[in-house]
């Protein structure tokens, strides 16, 4: 898993069937990457629902959150619509798990992303990363602490 101080690998993933998102697009902003195993499973849903309620806190720190799993864009669309999520879910679908692997958070056994958080600063450097036990929703306090640290710099 990539740690604090590493350069965040760039990526280009579909957020919707016809919209691609690059990490580079957010240059100058802080970015939160939330890798999670799968749409629809109960714990992830709570985790994404929590982040969905926190978008105004993230924007206070000039930060954009992106969810990433190996689910396809169509699955993400249905999930995101059902839970009324207001941030992009990216499909690490083809080649499967490529971005998760680049960040060192791909679970070869289950074929899913691990539950991991990265806070990337406005210069594209990883400022904080955290690997959560798969069954545990890591909450958001770690993310906010990391954003607070960046702000102090």
């Amino acid at each position: 898993m990539l740690e604090k101080g590493s350069k965040a690998p760039d990526f280009e993933l579909n957020a919707t069937p016809d919209q691609k998102i690059k990490l580079k697009d957010f240059k100058g902003k802080n970015v939160i990457l939330a890798f999670y195993p799968a749409d629809w499973s109960p714990v992830c849903s709570d985790q994404m629902a929590l982040y969905n309620e926190m978008l105004n806190y993230f924007s206070k720190y000039d930060a954009q959150i992106l969810g990433i799993s190996v689910d396809s864009v169509w699955c993400h669309l249905a999930f995101s619509g059902d839970r009324k999520l207001h941030f992009p879910l990216l499909a690490d679908f083809e080649p499967k798990g490529e971005v998760s692997k680049a960040y060192g958070v791909y679970d070869e056994e289950t074929g899913e992303s691990k539950r991991a958080l990265f806070v990337i600063d406005n210069e594209g450097e990883i400022a904080w990363s955290y690997l959560s036990p798969t069954a545990v929703n890591p909450g958001a306090d770690g993310i906010l602490d990391a954003l607070e640290e960046i702000k102090k710099k």
């Binding site: 709570d46 929703n137 890591p138 909450g139 906010l144």
Partner: peptide
Amino acid sequence: FESGVRSGVNG
């Protein structure tokens, strides 16, 4: 709500 977020409420 903010105190919950800061305190690590995850659900």
